[in-house]
Structures are given as C-alpha cells and as structure tokens.
C-alpha cells in the first residue's frame, strides 16, 4: 500500500504552472527526500501535497484515497501532518498549548489520549520537555523546529511532510534535528521531505528524488543518489 502518491500533477500560481506533470510515490512507512536546485518547484510541490495549492491537473492520493479536492484542514484531518518551513509554531502560545492545539482538532487515529501522545512526542524530542510552559516565540530556532515537528506528530499522522527542516539552523542544530527525524522515520510514519542540504536530507531517507525545473529528473535509492558523482555535480552542487 502507498502512503502518499502524486499522479501527473500540474500546479502553479495564477494559471502559470511551476510543476509540469510530477509523479511520485512514497510507500507506507517509507521515506522520500526531494532535492533540487533553487527554483525547481520544491516548495510548490510541498504546498500541493498539503493542500495549500490546488493542482490544475493530476491527483493527490493519501493512503490510497483521493484527497485532491480537499483543503489543508481537510487533509490534516485525513492524517497528513505538515511542518512548514517558516512560521511553523504559534509564537504567542506556549509550547504545551502548541502541542495541545495540534492534537485536538484532528480525530486521533488510534484513539490515543492527549497525555499518551504528549509522552510519545516528548520521548522523540526530550529537549523540549523543560520548555513546555514557555511561549514558543521565545525559543531558539532549533527548539522551534522541534516544537513544530512535535506538534505535527501529536495527532499521529500517517504521512509527515517536512519543508526544508534544516533552513536557518546552525550545522550543529541541523545534525541534532536530523537525528530526531531519523528517530521519527523509525516510528513507522510515512515521510516526505524537501531539503536543500542534500547530504543530511538523503541520509535519513530510503529514497531520493531530484526535481529540476518542475520535472522529475531522477528517482532512486537515496544511497545511490548520494554516491552518484554525476548527479551531484549536475544538480546537487558541492561535495
């Protein structure tokens, strides 16, 4: 069974397509990292997945169910968790309120209680336990990112979509965060990630996808993409 599928998606802004027929498939409990140069359409892809942009053509399937016509809250209630790149916590709410509000508007899939979910995400992110009463706006960038991810995980999503998790973090914080993402991946959630930092991003995912100019250029096991020298020099840049 597939966790998340995009079929020939054409999407963009004001009728001008940015994605030209993108197809991808993440198996249930699998993980996929989308990489590509700036302007390749990565963030449009993410917005289309979570329902902030409606595709002009194509379909979006969540666990086999067509969710193309659902808006963002609708998809969230069907089990799609999302961590936006920026402004991904409610800054004026405390950390525990952030977690609570993320939990209580989405029907729990396993009927889990708030307390048990809270313990589960705090086990994944022990760093935020001492900060529960602090306003999220007062946290550091790395801590905010963890709170955002913890909030997205509160309702036990079947699919978690991460938008550039390393953006704006120091290399050390990014390493810490990706260690946490690896822990999340092992809990059995289907993971879709967009990432600038190809080394970190591909290291935690089973498969990688290269998006260039709104089209899929390659899709392969992440380790193959990392070791493929040609691919790196062409699209990924650097080491």
């Amino acid at each position: 069974m597939s966790g998340l599928v995009l079929e020939n998606v054409v999407a963009g802004y004001r009728g001008r397509p940015v994605l030209h027929g993108v197809s991808l498939s993440v198996p249930a409990r699998g993980s996929l990292t989308v990489v590509g140069p700036n302007g390749s359409g990565k963030s449009t892809l993410m917005k289309t997945v979570v329902g902030l942009v409606q595709p002009q053509k194509g379909r979006v399937l969540l666990e086999g169910e067509d969710v193309t016509r659902l808006d963002a809250p609708g998809r969230a209630r069907r089990g799609l968790g999302h961590v936006p790149q920026e402004a991904n916590v409610f800054r004026s709410l405390s950390v525990s309120e952030n977690l609570k509000v993320a939990f209580e508007f989405i029907p729990a899939r396993s009927g889990a209680t708030f307390a048990s979910r809270l313990e589960a995400v705090l086990a994944l992110f022990p760093e935020i336990r001492p900060k529960l009463k602090v306003a999220a706006g007062h946290l550091s960038g790395g801590q905010r990112q963890m709170v955002a991810m913890a909030a997205a995980l509160m309702p036990e999503p079947s699919v978690l979509a991460l938008d550039e998790p390393s953006a704006g973090l120091s290399p050390k914080n990014a390493e810490l965060l990706f260690a946490a993402i690896a822990r999340i991946a092992s809990t059995g959630v289907t993971l879709l990630m967009i990432e600038q930092n190809t080394r970190l991003g591909l290291a935690v995912a089973a498969r990688g996808l290269v998006l260039v100019a709104g089209q899929v250029k390659a899709e392969a096991p992440a380790t193959d993409l990392l070791s493929d020298g040609l691919m790196q020099s062409l699209y990924l840049g650097g080491h």
Partner: peptide
Amino acid sequence: DNADLAAVRGI
C-alpha cells in the same frame, strides 16, 4: 497568531 499554520493543524 498564524492563520495558515492553523489551517495546516486542522483548525
């Protein structure tokens, strides 16, 4: 606080 994020959180 953040209407877009609230939508993503299913509110």
